[in-house]
Amino acid sequence: MSDVLLTPPDAVEVQWVARGVVSAAQGEQGLTPLQQLLIPALFLSLTGHAVELDALAPITPVEYAQGLTRRNRIFRERVVQTMLLAALVVRPLPACVGEQLRAFADALDVDDEMISVAQKYADGAEDLAAVDFSRNGYLSGLGTGRLHALHTSELDSSWSAVVDDPVLAARWGELRELPMGTLGRGVADFYRDRGFVTPGLPGSAPPLLAQHDWVHVLAGYGTTLENEIEVFAFMARANDDPRAFSLLAMVISLFETGYLRAGAGLFEANAGHLRSSGMAGRLGDALRRGALTRGSHDFLDLDFFALADRPITVVRNEIGLTPKAEAAVSAGSVGPWQPGGITPFQLNSARVAAESEARPYIPWQPDPTRD
């Protein structure tokens, strides 16, 4: 199409896009309180334009799609993902919403695998939805490139742990010898301060999940469950592959609705965290920061060890990482070494780990300059 519109949406088009999101995601009783917080927060963060929900009249899928005919597939895919995100925070999800999501996606000529997950949630088939996550997500396969980035060849599945690999454990251990201020040293301290076990040793997280720990340090997010939502939102949106949205859908299903009982080889359901004060805006800001990175970044398929000896500031500059919005910081978005960026359980785990290894215990200390 010669007249494809590639400029950011203006205020008028933002209202149109939001109109379709509301029409697709709301049940017969209207939007839930969380949806009423989340949808405006997403649009304000991602477009800079405010939306007034009361002014958004319902619209049919066909009429809606006609208003987006100048937008390319990438734009329409992101619109459908916004619809999905607005719907996946609801439990129980009304059956009509599952049908609406499919109808709007079909009208926009978008096929997102998470629509099937949403429909299964709406049908009460949560176990089948969990199978869809493992079978249809973009992490369902293990290519040689991904295994190379993880520095292991022992994985049976994407989220398998590696608990007896001295070479892998030694590679992680070498990060402690790097200078302060480097990305690798930051990750080593991040693990020490929380009592986390590095891949290759008993009790460790899966190597693939450990990849996202580098992102905590790189993007400046702590390790509460609210921070986990931010990290996975950032990673999902920084990746131009639309299938990466399944990462965000997974953590929402774990840490907001509890649709998933477990995920990513380690996480267990702990619902209600998106309802925490200010979290709607923090989620929107994490998506914004991911969208504004330079290029496309599959952080779960990146050999972080190749960047380990580089200053964090340099790596951040190279990917075009933007600062957090002041509103997100005011709402509680903190880094790994800022007050509130660590849990009491993790603090205790670090003490116990030091005692069990007969090494000096170095207490975690707030140090905002590291974030």
Rank of each mutant, 00 (worst) to 15 (best):
L287I: 14
A107P: 00
E268W: 06
L208V: 07
V251D: 02
F267G: 00
A55L: 13
V217S: 01
R282W: 05
Y191G: 00
T293D: 02
F299M: 10
L218G: 02
A291W: 04
T257W: 06
R261Y: 05
L175H: 02
I59A: 11
R237I: 07
Q29T: 13
S276D: 12
D54Y: 02
H148A: 15
L225W: 10
D371V: 10
R294P: 00
V167A: 15
E28N: 12
G30R: 11
G137I: 05
F345Q: 13
E357K: 09
V12S: 13
L307E: 06
I252Q: 03
G295S: 06
A262M: 11
L142A: 08
D123K: 10
R351Q: 15
A87R: 03
F305V: 07
G173C: 09
A271G: 02
A308T: 03
H49P: 00
R261G: 14
A350L: 11
D127C: 05
E228W: 04
V110I: 15
A161K: 10
C96R: 11
L168Q: 07
A327C: 01
D132Y: 09
S276W: 04
A55M: 07
N72A: 15
G181I: 06
N239R: 08
A55K: 12
L307C: 10
L53F: 08
P368E: 13
F267P: 00
L56Y: 04
S158D: 05
A50V: 13
N317V: 05
F196E: 05
Q81M: 14
V90I: 15
A286T: 02
T313G: 06
G20W: 06
T69L: 11
A130E: 13
L68I: 09
S153E: 13
G98W: 09
G195S: 09
E230N: 04
Q346S: 12
I115E: 01
F196R: 10
M279Q: 15
D309W: 04
H49Y: 14
H212E: 09
A161F: 03
L42H: 04
S157P: 00
M83H: 04
L209G: 00
A188T: 05
